[in-house]
Simulated assay, not measured.
Amino acid sequence: MSNSHNPSDTRPIIPALSTLWTALEPLSWLILRVTTGILLMPHGAGKLFGLFGGYGLEGTGGYFDSIGFHPGYLFALLVGTLEFFGGALLVLGLLTRPVAAAVVVFMTVAFFIHLPNGYAWINAGVEMPIMWGMLALAVLIRGGGRFSLDHKLGYEF
């Protein structure tokens, strides 16, 4: 006798919502991918253009120089471009896996930069790099999905 559970044998707690969840399920990946991209974009806009309380390329470059990433201006440009334009590509589902892979690498580095500050983001800890890294890893594994330009163009990198 097996103790495994077949998900198709489950009963919804609120049966009246079953039809709604079934209808919306195909959109769940789109929601996650698009939200990830949209929420990355203001971080890049801050680094590139000084928007949303960011310091622009000069200020962000100075920060990168201060933590040992030289030339800081170049790192600010690379990271800002990844967050802003890469975020837009995630929204569109274009070059989804390469962008997600780059975000995973960047967030791995960010994890170690923020590690001395502990866990909580309110103290500039690792909470947000972990979250962004895991979201990007999920996107990297799954790809753009059915509602992406990658899928529409017939390419999955």
Rank of each mutant, 00 (worst) to 15 (best):
Leu39Glu: 13
Gly46His: 09
Val104Asp: 03
Leu82Ala: 00
Val105Pro: 02
Leu32Glu: 09
His70Asp: 02
Arg33Thr: 10
His43Met: 13
Leu30His: 10
Gly53Tyr: 11
Ala23Lys: 14
His43Glu: 12
Ala76His: 00
Gly125Thr: 04
Gly61Ala: 13
Phe84Val: 01
Ala138Trp: 15
Ala136Arg: 14
Val99Gln: 12
Thr10Cys: 08
Tyr119Met: 07
Ile113Gln: 07
Tyr155His: 06
Glu58Cys: 02
Gly133His: 04
Val126Ala: 03
Ala100Ser: 12
Ile141Val: 12
Leu140Arg: 11
Gly61Lys: 12
Pro129Gln: 07
Gly50Glu: 06
Leu94Tyr: 07
Phe84Gly: 02
Pro98Lys: 14
Gly154Phe: 14
Val104Trp: 04
Val139Pro: 09
Gly68Pro: 06
Asn3Val: 13
Tyr119Ser: 03
Leu40Asp: 01
Thr35Leu: 14
Val103Pro: 04
Pro7Ile: 05
Gly62Asn: 11
Ala76Phe: 01
Gly46Thr: 11
Leu40Ser: 06
Val126Trp: 03
Asp65Cys: 15
Ile14Pro: 05
Ala102Thr: 12
Gly87Val: 04
Leu57Arg: 00
Gly50Gln: 08
Gly68Tyr: 06
Trp21Gln: 12
Ala101Met: 15
Trp121Pro: 05
Phe52Asn: 04
Gly72Thr: 04
Leu82Pro: 00
Pro129Ser: 03
Lys152Arg: 13
Arg33Tyr: 11
Pro42Glu: 01
Pro71Gly: 03
Gly72Asp: 01
Ala45Trp: 14
Asn6Pro: 06
Ser4Glu: 15
Gly118Phe: 09
Pro129Lys: 03
Leu92Cys: 08
Tyr119Glu: 03
Gly118Val: 03
Arg11Met: 15
Leu74Glu: 07
Arg97Ser: 02
Gly59Arg: 08
Ala120Asn: 15
Tyr63Gln: 10
Gly80Glu: 01
Gly144Met: 14
Ala138Val: 15
Phe69Arg: 02
Ile31Thr: 12
Gly154His: 09
Leu20Ile: 13
Phe85Asp: 00
Trp29Gln: 13
Phe49Tyr: 11
Ala23Phe: 11
Thr35His: 05
Asn3Phe: 13
Phe111Ser: 12
Glu127Arg: 04
